[in-house]
Amino acid sequence: MAHEDIDAVTGTPTTGHEWDGIKELNNPLPRWWLWTFYACVVWSVAYWVVYPAWPMISNFTGGVIGYSSRASLETDLAALHQLRGAKAAALADASLEEIEKDPNLLAFARAQGRAAFGDNCAPCHGSGATGSTGYPNLNDDDWLWGGSLAAIHQTIQHGARSGDPEARENTMLAFGKDGTLNHTQIVQVASYVRSLSGLPVEQGVDVAAGKQIFAENCTVCHGEDAKGNQELGAPNLTDRIWLYGGDMATLVETITNGRGGVMPAWTGRLDPVTIKSLAVYVHTLGGGK
């Protein structure tokens, strides 16, 4: 440099930049810092070569070692399946009853079933399988379509009113909307149904007439004793569990408009072993028959 301005106080050269008499000292970066920086530059270039880096029009540069985070995930998943392989195979081979009898298989199936339940069933049935209005509680012993292992397995596989050819299929008729029963009759039969569970009935309602209406219209599915029929998916009307609610207003609404909740078929969505695990899990929640 032709001219070098030395700062008088520190003895350090300046960069020549000056603002209102304040000069910038020329303190170069430490060598080690600079070399580290160069090393990082070299490293990053190597990184572009080795790993996927630059976006192209429809693709990207792949890198020489062909790394892919997706492939890495698949390797991990394959390792996991490998790890679970023996037990999963045992689960596939064993019958549902055998699974429940074998403590190891039971623990494995329940763990797998719990995870699958949380992913697939909890949105309707709740994380604790307690259900909610219109969605059955799977912990209790009241089953629409049967609480045996086989029945639960069948329901999960094919669903209810799901459109699957083997789905659970029935219809609670809309007695009011269809004009079969008028409002007074509906109130009468609803009161009768409440009385079956020992619930109080409003003053002045002719329960005997309700009983007559029940015998004429409801016993085909719900049975003469109103205890329901799991072959048809008709609920027991004498117990203390209500799918939609046992209060007067809800019962009137049910009889007037009918009901028809839908459960999807899970065959095709989930693999058979997972469905088996789910059946075991639901059965061992406590209500299984």
Binding site: G128, T130, N137, N139, D140, D141, D142, D239, R240, L285
Partner: peptide, 18 residues
């Protein structure tokens, strides 16, 4: 104790905890 549900009422009115 099961965290969810805390208890279950059965069809005959019995109460069950898991």
């Amino acid at each position: 104790h099961d965290r969810n549900p805390l208890y279950v009422t059965l069809s005959n009115g019995s109460v069950r905890n898991a």
